[in-house]
Design a protein around this nucleic acid. Sequence first.
DNA 1: ATTGTATATGCGGATAGGCGAATAAGGCAA
DNA 2: TTGCCTTATTCGCCTATCCGCATATACAAT
Lengths: 137, 137
Amino acid sequence: MRDLEGYFKGLSDVTRLRIMNLLLQGELCVCDIQRIVEGSQPTVSRHLNYLKHSGLVLDRRDGLRVFYRLAKENNADLRALHHFLRRVFKGKGVLENDVKELKDAMARGACAVPTPFRAGKPVPSDATASRAPLQAS
Amino acid sequence: MRDLEGYFKGLSDVTRLRIMNLLLQGELCVCDIQRIVEGSQPTVSRHLNYLKHSGLVLDRRDGLRVFYRLAKENNADLRALHHFLRRVFKGKGVLENDVKELKDAMARGACAVPTPFRAGKPVPSDATASRAPLQAS
DNA sequence: ATTGTATATGCGGATAGGCGAATAAGGCAA
DNA sequence: TTGCCTTATTCGCCTATCCGCATATACAAT
């Protein structure tokens, strides 16, 4: 009940909706999210913090990076919510474009980790160029 | 997208969630809603107005009373939302108790109109005692 | 320790939301 | 008209969000 209210507050912002849409694709690091939603770094960080305190996402640190993922573990409401979000996010131009940009970034070597997150380093194949995570090789 | 943000803002309050839960049962007049959520009359009115401007509910006046109902007409997102709400509202003590109180009130002759709202007077069988809509006969 | 990168937090101002108290407005009935 | 009932709106106050800017923290590498 209070949980629900919190979830909805968390979703009451376009930027956070875009972030949730991205996280439905899998775990992502802050820098990749920021690059796609094009907000200032503090703004994105605060939105992520808001989502975290709403109980919608979880985070973990790996070295310099912090990775965010949906908090779906053993919670029926959250699973229903994800199902609903996947449904209503369909056909929303901005959101679908964000996913497209994300896929492009991943293909070019973003620092994100594929869906069922693996424990290792988040850096892709050619790990030497670690300065700008999204630079093409 | 903006619509979605508005829907979620509309749902970001416990009182409004309770109202939405009641309206899932069918069209209701303000006085019945107020009696159940136990807020002040201005507070309930403002929440209803907020829901209306979020695009979540519609209203119509019938004499002294104003009736509110869910705005589901030809909108796929709203239909998905209602489905989701029905799902997550299940098992929430406060909400289920509200519905119980609503059904009791209807049985005692509330001013509400059954689900697919009929056009006639909202007053139940014994229309003479119209002072306090929820008084038992 | 120092430097550099990634992320978080503090502060200030602007805007929005929430509630109580009082008042206004819409509508029926005598 | 007057009076009454139901609902909406205004006002004032307080709290919560949102953002930009600056600064702090966490970590890695040298």
